[in-house]
Design a protein around this nucleic acid. Sequence first.
DNA 1: AATGAATGAGGATTCATTCAT
DNA 2: CATGAATGAATCCTCATTCAT
Lengths: 216, 216, 216, 216
Amino acid sequence: MQSDTKPRWERRKDARPQELLAAALDLFVDRGYAATRLEDVARRAGVSKGTLYLYFENKEELFKAVVRENIVDVIGKAESDIAAASGASCSELLRTMLHKWWSEVGSTRASGLAKLIMAEAGNFPEIAAFYNDEVIERGNGLIASIVRRGVESGEFAPVDADVMTRVLTAPVLMLMLWSHSFFPCDTGGMDPEAYMAAFLGLVERGIRAPAPVAPT
Amino acid sequence: MQSDTKPRWERRKDARPQELLAAALDLFVDRGYAATRLEDVARRAGVSKGTLYLYFENKEELFKAVVRENIVDVIGKAESDIAAASGASCSELLRTMLHKWWSEVGSTRASGLAKLIMAEAGNFPEIAAFYNDEVIERGNGLIASIVRRGVESGEFAPVDADVMTRVLTAPVLMLMLWSHSFFPCDTGGMDPEAYMAAFLGLVERGIRAPAPVAPT
Amino acid sequence: MQSDTKPRWERRKDARPQELLAAALDLFVDRGYAATRLEDVARRAGVSKGTLYLYFENKEELFKAVVRENIVDVIGKAESDIAAASGASCSELLRTMLHKWWSEVGSTRASGLAKLIMAEAGNFPEIAAFYNDEVIERGNGLIASIVRRGVESGEFAPVDADVMTRVLTAPVLMLMLWSHSFFPCDTGGMDPEAYMAAFLGLVERGIRAPAPVAPT
Amino acid sequence: MQSDTKPRWERRKDARPQELLAAALDLFVDRGYAATRLEDVARRAGVSKGTLYLYFENKEELFKAVVRENIVDVIGKAESDIAAASGASCSELLRTMLHKWWSEVGSTRASGLAKLIMAEAGNFPEIAAFYNDEVIERGNGLIASIVRRGVESGEFAPVDADVMTRVLTAPVLMLMLWSHSFFPCDTGGMDPEAYMAAFLGLVERGIRAPAPVAPT
DNA sequence: AATGAATGAGGATTCATTCAT
DNA sequence: CATGAATGAATCCTCATTCAT
């Protein structure tokens, strides 16, 4: 009675969506949205094509789910963190956020999703809108709010927060693009760490308000 | 029955290639490589599908021709310029080159080609190799040679030329990506000029070697 | 709304390959390789274009499968038979093999494949190589081995086995060509049986070693 | 006045059709009817595609012209010869005709046309009909008339003339097929002369009426 | 006469999605 | 729930034929 009963936790169907999302992330990142075949996603997750459709309405919904799982959630967490960390210096906070962004998204497979969006948003307006609302707006808002706070407190030079947000995020975005299959044989000597260090050095020296000239 | 009958088509041998390249540039930039249909390119150029094949062997060759026409030629010109401008200060030269790059490629439709490559190189190795050889290698080499010269002459801090090249080019690349169909509704408040100004400011203050401390 | 609604399609996984091979044989034989459209093959098998590709990778593989199914297998069987029939007279064996060839391939639709190869091998080198290796070489080897054995045993006149093989097979080949769509309205009065009889008569009288002159 | 006039015999337009026919023969023979591109024919003849259409209405008419030029004319000549050679022995005449057929058509590039017809007649009924009327019927009629005469005169065994015609012509046809690109690497050791010799030997011994048994 | 640019119908192949089992 | 067979629209490319020059 015992032995021939299937163990009830074997391949719980609850695990399926996660397996599919993981497979989809890999393939979307490697090949892009249009070039990813759902059959490959299914196969990689160890199920059949039809099964995928039991969990996700279609390719688009699958993609959105992947983005939610890998990016949107991270942003949500960061938003809470910022709200909480009202005491820290903005410079410090900025460095922390940029680094966290890098470590929790940029340096993971998920960073490939940014590349994908940049590449294909034009062909898939629905997806573009979704990503814009759920990721871009919220992510940029996060950084901009810190910059704005720093400018107001006099810690930063009086820059335009929105422009500076893009200046600051650009290199991390670039690095994300580079990290994931920019193309096969490129990024030869590029070391992400070295890049981030060089970048943060520039920021350190470049954004800070000039120290008030000491009176002679 | 008269001479005013519209002919079914016109012979425009000399103009065709340019018209086709222009149409192809537009569509490749808007839709990417895979999603661009040759029939649409033809139609936009005012000819039929078949005609396109009279001038370009296939999709890949058409794309290469577009890249040559819009990017490779510019790089060639820049190479000559650099060789000639051996007298200028490296800082000056660097700013000039980055700006020229922006004005002659980045701010034109051609910048969309960079986005395209980033997006789809992984799916089209042949094209990736071509672009890498003809654009990336030569373009980076250009910047790196200036940095290297500046470091050697003591004008710049002793940075790694290859890493710094990527640091320097990243924002322009980013801007190129942003400028063209990042996605339809994005780049809202982004003003390229403001971005370039902020960026070049950073560079100015960040890369220069610290002025030797004046002896007391 | 009831159970009598015709389903849009039926699942017939096991039967499909055979149905497709049969349809393909018919069309390849009637129209040749290049002129056969896969959509027609599919339709004749009662499925859609896409379904064909579930079972055969492409046109070439479909064709190879047709040849394997209809010719290669028969040759394999004949090879075994010959090996087994070491006791029979070579003349007898030869007649048996030629006749079997005729009855199991020549007189069936499969004979059209020989015509097809003759016609189009030059344009499809891959297919030519396949057919040469799997059919021609093995088929000719079969006949040649019998002739050689007959010459060695003195039963046959001392002919060159390879040349004689072609002499012997030529008429059967011809007949195969004639039987199948040589062209629509030809072969008017030609009766294959009459032809084979005439041919075998020639062989009988022509190949046999002259009876030793009886001593006076 | 003299020197700058173009020599009037340079590339007389009268030569064009011949050049086109020669080019067409080559290509039809090498690639078959459907696979021969008129542009290639034109190029090989040293003219442009359009020019070809000045001399031949379309592909089909071009092909018919090639057949007329290379086969029909030969048959016409043979018909006259036979009518004239009423005195010869039928055996002799038969051998002569078969050999002439071989030497004037079979061993020339024109033999490829037979292959082409066999292969593609089914797809081009118009062409099939033309070839049947102009070549097959008249050619077979030629041989059959000789056989018939031989049977009537008692020189030959009492065979069915039409069947025997096909038996006799088959090997020559075969040889024609073999000679022209049967396929690339085949016909390895096959020497047409050896084949013809073996064949004529068979005929010699096989068709002749048994010598009347000498009265004891 | 000659040219060759232009046309457009036609066929192989791919893949998101549906649905019979 | 799960499967995977079946569908068919979509896209690249070819080539006989036409016709502006």
